[in-house]
């Protein structure tokens, strides 16, 4: 159990998908103009990451690694991305039916997530890190949570930036890059913390 909490803390703070690996930057920069939308996208990422990573783990272990004695791991990319795309579409349909209010707040972000490299990246990292099933669940949720924190934080700073005198050519995108870089450096301070110490 301690191991699972470890992985959660590690993937959320220390190996933050957005600020340590800089994954999912396209939507990270495009949707971080206001805190409200950032929260929406962040929640959607936690949700999809938490679902796809365990699912991809199951597919990888029970289908690709040993398909009637054949090693099909070369199909990994195609299977993973199809899972993500299919799941996102499925989730979109289910959410629309079950809870229209949630759909209104999350719905528009769901299609964006398919091409969010944080999701596919996390799935691929899950393979290279050789996690077991329980660990991959924790990694999925932790990774999503870390990404959520990062985008909400950057959106908060960008809202405040509206009142600052930024040189015209740097306004918007340029400043977002600088801020993300600075936050990445701040997050590097967390590197090397041993989560086992929190047990």
């Amino acid at each position: 159990m301690g191991d699972i909490i470890n992985i959660f803390i590690k993937s959320a703070f220390i190996e933050n998908l957005a600020l340590s690996y800089f994954l999912g930057m396209c939507s990270f920069l495009a949707v971080s103009k206001s805190v409200k939308t950032a929260i929406g996208l962040g929640l959607a990422v936690i949700f999809v990451n938490g679902l796809t990573i365990p699912l991809n783990w199951l597919l990888d272990h029970y289908l690709l690694n040993d398909f009637f004695g054949q090693d099909l791991t070369f199909l990994r990319f195609i299977i993973f991305i199809s899972t993500i795309a299919a799941l996102v579409q499925l989730v979109e349909m289910v959410v629309e039916k079950v809870s229209p209010s949630l759909y209104n707040s999350l719905g528009i972000f769901l299609p964006l997530i398919t091409v969010n490299c944080a999701i596919l990246g996390a799935s691929l990292f899950m393979i290279t890190k050789e996690y077991n099933f329980a660990q991959s669940v924790s990694f999925g949720l932790g990774g999503g949570f870390g990404w959520f924190l990062a985008i909400v934080a950057i959106a908060g700073i960008r809202e405040k930036m509206q009142y600052s005198h930024v040189p015209a050519p740097l306004r918007g995108l340029g400043m977002a890059f600088f801020l993300t870089g600075l936050m990445g450096m701040a997050f590097m301070g967390l590197m090397g913390i041993d989560p086992a110490a929190f047990k």
Partner: peptide, 28 residues
């Protein structure tokens, strides 16, 4: 060599590019 540096370099490239071409400046 650390990854945040790449962010700064891209930001500087954007800065230079937008200073030369005012059309691209973000108004928001």
């Amino acid at each position: 060599v650390l990854s945040p540096a790449a962010m700064f370099i891209v930001a500087i490239i954007i800065w230079i590019q937008r200073s030369r071409n005012a059309k691209l400046v973000d108004i928001s």
